[in-house]
Amino acid sequence: MAKVTLTVNGRTMSSECDDRTLLVHFIRDKLGLTGTHVGCDTTQCGACVVHMDGKSVKSCSILAVQAAGSTVTTIEGIASQGELHPVQAAFNQHHGLQCGFCTPGMVMTAVDMINRHGGQLDEQTVRHELEGNICRCTGYHNIVKAVLSANEEMHGASRQAAE
């Protein structure tokens, strides 16, 4: 058993778990944050994507003890003061989901992608970057639209702020 302490969505949280406990199970079962999903359990589907120290990772393929001391952001942590994150708002506006199971991972992936590319995103890049996330409903078209729209919103907004 290990005591794992993480900063999750800005709050320090601790719990005991087995050394073999996966980060996704720690987040869901010990911390009660069930927005992060387990889709395939074989590192393929991306429903479990969270940010660890600012980078997107598959939380089903990391032990909670590996993440100890890290800063983790989950889908519950990206909206602020009741306002949806621009990526969440874009998924809503463009209907970037049907059943919604993959959506937490898609949204966390999109936020990481937009941050990394600094506004330089086109459709081909978005499609390539989504290779680690599987959606069985939408056929991806509306997801891609939502990501591009959120990218415009986030970088358009930052350009305005800079002016």
Binding site: S56, V57, S61, T109, D112, M113, E131
Partner: peptide, 9 residues
């Protein structure tokens, strides 16, 4: 290699 999340680890 893999996908963006795998490449981060």
């Amino acid at each position: 290699i893999g996908d963006p999340h795998v490449r981060h680890m």
